[in-house]
Every structure is written in structure tokens, then in C-alpha cells.
Design a protein around this nucleic acid. Structure first.
Length: 483
RNA sequence: GCGAAAGUAGCUCAGCUGGUAGAGCAUCACGUUGCCAACGUGAGGGUCGACGGUUCGAAUCCGUUCUUUCGCUCCA
């Protein structure tokens, strides 16, 4: 199998089998948006249910919620997204490379920084970080004139180490903006949430008091989030509309280190529990330079796609940043009273934040296999039975002698407990292969012996081996195979 | 957004220098077969991404636009 084309293979398989279609396809498609078809949505629901069960249902001290996507704009002012969730970018016109201005400044000779601060800043700033930030702010403020200032400063391209021909500084705001109400004016601006987490933070008090949870405890949520990413791609890996599975764990500020470690391993194990090859999963600690504005420590769960190791989930120590900010901006007290220790404090937060769509891409990429069987190629999705869109497919060996009726009765009975599929079309081998490609772990065939002794064959997708099972024991046999 | 490449049937693609569309697979029907992508016959499915131009004539040449892929930047 050509590794370089895994994404192409999955894109095409997804469309053919009904996992994932490009959005608005009949109108030429809309960039980076995808629709889940009949098999895709089953897979997605199974993954989300699995997350919900293992993060919330199974735990006494984690509860769920579902916040609205639209929130008061002050939420994003408080969270820092309005100020920080954008990138100042400049392009080198000579070699067409694009850079983040703030990263670029860190790589400049003193002469460039001196020129910029002399030209732009009215007073001397000691801290280098603050100086850079002030320069960025000023360059953004002067708009188109930033082009001439940058070029006069002789700012170099870090690759060539030479002054380049720069464009003006442009802001890329990563939040989707919309308007609420009938009139579009500045007072009606609202944002589509760029993360579900803030819906949890602003409900901290509501949830804590109504659920009577004591610290440490968590609040989890699954929902859509929107980011105006500059570059999207790799199928459903990076899209502008995506779904998150997030959990915010509120604990004592002295204990974040311990809980960060705990949740990091819990989350890595969750991905392993989806049946993903664990040699392709790893944890990676963030360096200081890549931490988000709210975070003091962060681990990524990564999977080795054919386009490289990529992040599936971030587990971050957000400290008391979010509750502090919301307390400050809202004027509401968002602290916790620990009765036994007679102590008031603002809880710190350890966050687990996973992408639903990335989890789906991961299980698909990991499950896809091309095998040789008797000289023929077999495409098979070795999805865990826990998440496979169809659990069991039922076939009559022949479309006569009463076999279709028996098979139809079996599938009707199974349907109430298992996602089932009935197929009479084509040879039995072809039907098995179709289900292999859809990731269905089990196949049941009604054959001649069924007419004699009421048994059917139960086929295992991965080994292709069959065992005979009495029809009245089928439910138990399937339960055994899928647990 | 910038640069490069691409867009022809559900999927993967062919179609040379302009002469009004093909293959393999897939789908459906009928017949035959009956445990791992069988065979036969037949059918459906494309205004060749869209719009405009050149031309007697455009999938093919030119322009614009949309979309996708890769890279730069960012993130779940």
C-alpha cells in the first residue's frame, strides 16, 4: 500500500461507502467542510458515546453539560480570545514565505529591533517580550504603512538571513464573527465559539452547586467549535468547523501537576481502548514557546499519520486563568469554599480537549488494511467492534429455499440490540468483502444446514474464520464477540 | 491570503497536435452458481467544475471564477 496516499484512499473510500462526503458538493463544495453519511455518523456517534461513557457515565465526580454555541461577546473578551486569538502575519514577497510577525522579531539582529522601537515606540521598554508585543501592536495600528516601516528596518528572513521585501502586517482573526438579532450593527456582534471550554467555565457555579460536586470534579461537554484557520486540510484533520470532546477538571491549585499527569495517561489509554495501534500513539510535552496564552503546561496525544505525527488531543494545565478572568470581567465571585479545611480559593483547571473528527480520521487510518487473500486484494477496515458502524451483517447463502425469510427474521430480531445490515446482493464472497470494507466485524450466513438444524455461520472479519452457532444463541455469541 | 499542481461516470483514470466522450471497478435487473471481490446478457449514470472568449466546430486553445491537494502560518 502506498503510504503517501492514505488520505486519498480514505477520502475515496469514505465517499463510496457513505462515511464522509464533501459538504455542498453539488454546488462545487465548500472549503474544508465535510458531511457525515450513514456509516460515518454511526462511527461518530459510537466514538462520542464511548468518550461520554468513559469520561462521564463511569465517573462519580465528572458530570456533563451542553452549552450554546453563541455566547455573550464578553466571554471572549475575558477569555483572551479577542485579544490573543489572531495572528499578525507578513509575507516575504521574494520567496513567498509567510511568517508570524511576533516569531520573526525573535530572530532579528539588534539593529532591526532598535530601528523599529525608535520609529514606533514613544518610550523605552526594558522587557524584550513586552517590547516585541508593543512593536507588533504598533505595526498593526499603522496598517498599510507597516510595509514601508518593515522594509526600512531591513528586517531579515530567518532562512536566508538577508533583508527581504515584506508585505504589510495583516491580522488573521481566528474567530468567526456573526450578528445576533435583526439589525447588523456593532452592538449585535457575536462569535461562534472557538472552543467549548468557555461554556463550561461560565457555568462553573451553576453546575457545581446544582450537582453538589466537591473539588476535585470535572465537567465534560461534546460540541461544535469554529476556527477560521488560515490553512485547512488533510481531509477532516483540520477543518474550520469541527467537534470537540472537552473536559475541565477543577482542582486545588496545588494539585494541577498531579491531575495533569493522571488525565494525560487516562486520555492516552482511551485512544488505545479504541483499538488504535499503540506504537503509533505517543505523548509529547509542549515546549514553553508553543503554549497557548492560557496554559502553563501541556501534553499532546499524537498519532503517526502518513503525513507525520499529529495532535489528537491536548491535555493542559490552565491554572486559575479562566475562572480568574471571568470573575474579573463579570464581577461575579467564581471561587470555591472547602468546608473541611475552611478555605476559600479559585479552583485551577486541568483540561482534556480532543477532536472528534481527528479521532475518526485516526481510527479509519489505523484500521485500513489491504490484504492478499488467495491472490485477490482484500480491503478491510479493522475497526473495533465497540465503534464499528455496523456490528453484524446477515446474508442468505442463496435467494431461495426459504433462506431469505430466515435471514430476514434474524436481522429483524438483532436490530433492536445491534446495528445490523441485511444483504442479498451478489455472491456470498462479494457480500463478505463489502462488509469488510465497511468495517463490519461479524457476518451471519443462513445456509443449507440452517434448514436442517437451525444453526448459522458466524464469520469473524479479521480472521475470516467461521463457527456454527444455533440461532437462539446468536445474541449471546455476538455479545461475547463485541464486548 | 500567497506560491505550485489539479478538476472528465459513484470511485480510479484514459482521451496525442481542436472534429460533438471511453475503460476498469462499483450500482441495478434477469439467468446460472452457491462460503470469501464467480460467469453470461443487459441497463442506468457525464451539459468533461462554472462562466465568458477564439473558432464553422472546444473536454482539448485563451481569460475569469469556484473547488481540491501540497507548502508557508496556526490548531483539537
Amino acid at each position: 500500500m502506498s503510504k503517501a496516499t492514505m488520505i486519498d484512499l480514505l477520502t475515496s473510500l469514505s465517499k463510496q461507502r457513505g462515511f464522509i462526503f464533501q459538504s455542498s458538493e453539488i454546488y462545487g463544495g465548500l472549503g474544508s467542510t465535510w458531511d457525515y453519511g450513514p456509516l460515518g455518523i454511526e462511527l461518530k456517534r459510537n466514538i462520542k458515546n464511548h468518550w461520554w461513557k468513559s469520561m462521564i457515565t463511569k465517573r462519580q465526580n465528572v458530570v456533563g453539560m451542553d452549552a450554546s454555541i453563541l455566547m455573550h461577546p464578553d466571554v471572549w473578551r475575558a477569555s483572551g480570545h479577542i485579544d490573543n486569538f489572531h495572528d499578525p502575519l507578513v509575507d516575504n514577497k521574494d520567496n513567498k514565505k509567510r511568517y508570524r510577525l511576533d516569531h520573526l522579531l525573535e530572530d532579528q539582529p539588534d539593529s532591526v529591533i532598535d530601528y523599529l522601537s525608535d520609529t514606533l515606540l514613544s518610550k523605552e521598554i526594558k522587557s524584550l517580550d513586552e517590547k516585541f508585543q508593543a512593536i507588533v501592536t504598533e505595526l498593526i495600528n499603522i496598517g498599510a504603512r507597516s510595509e514601508s516601516v518593515l522594509n526600512e528596518s531591513q528586517m531579515i528572513d530567518p532562512e536566508t538571513r538577508k533583508p527581504a521585501s515584506w508585505t504589510s502586517v495583516r491580522q488573521f482573526n481566528l474567530m468567526f464573527k456573526t450578528h445576533m438579532g435583526p439589525i447588523e450593527d456593532t452592538g449585535s456582534v457575536a462569535y461562534l465559539r472557538p472552543e467549548t471550554a468557555q461554556g463550561i467555565f461560565v457555568n462553573f457555579q451553576n453546575v457545581q452547586s446544582s450537582s453538589r460536586q466537591k473539588i476535585p470534579f470535572g465537567i465534560g461537554q461534546i460540541g461544535k467549535a469554529f476556527r477560521n484557520e488560515i490553512t485547512t486540510g488533510n481531509f477532516i484533520f483540520r477543518t474550520r468547523e469541527f467537534e470537540q470532546m472537552e473536559m475541565e477538571y477543577f482542582c486545588h491549585p496545588n494539585e494541577t501537576e498531579k491531575w495533569l499527569e493522571y488525565w494525560t495517561h487516562e486520555r492516552l489509554n482511551w485512544f488505545k481502548s479504541l483499538g488504535i495501534n499503540d506504537t503509533k500513539l505517543r505523548l509529547r510535552a509542549h515546549g514553553a514557546d508553543e503554549l497557548a496564552h492560557y496554559s502553563s503546561a501541556c501534553y499532546d496525544v499524537e498519532y503517526e499519520f502518513d503525513f507525520g505525527w499529529s495532535e489528537l488531543e491536548g491535555i493542559a494545565d490552565r491554572g486559575t486563568y479562566d475562572l480568574d478572568k471571568h470573575a474579573e470581567h463579570s464581577g461575579k465571585k467564581l471561587s470555591y469554599f472547602d468546608q473541611p479545611n475552611n478555605e476559600h480559593f479559585t479552583p485551577a483547571v486541568v483540561e482534556t480537549s480532543a477532536g472528534v473528527d481527528r479521532a475518526i480520521l485516526t481510527v479509519l487510518a489505523d484500521a485500513y488494511h489491504e490484504e492478499e487473500v488467495n491472490g485477490d486484494k482484500r480491503n478491510v477496515l479493522k475497526l473495533s467492534p465497540k465503534i464499528a458502524p455496523i456490528t453484524v451483517a446477515v446474508f442468505p447463502l442463496m435467494n431461495k429455499n426459504g433462506m431469505p425469510e430466515i435471514a430476514q427474521k434474524i436481522v429483524d430480531d438483532l436490530r433492536s440490540n445491534y446495528s445490523s445490515f441485511y444483504d442479498t446482493g451478489g455472491s456470498i464472497g462479494r457480500r463478505y468483502r463489502r462488509q469488510d470494507e465497511a468495517g463490519t466485524p461479524l457476518g451471519i450466513t443462513v445456509d443449507h444446514d440452517t434448514l436442517e438444524d437451525n444453526t448459522v455461520t458466524l464469520r469473524d472479519r479479521d480472521t475470516m474464520e467461521q463457527v456454527r452457532v444455533s440461532i437462539d444463541k446468536l445474541s449471546d455469541a455476538i455479545a461475547e464477540k463485541t464486548k
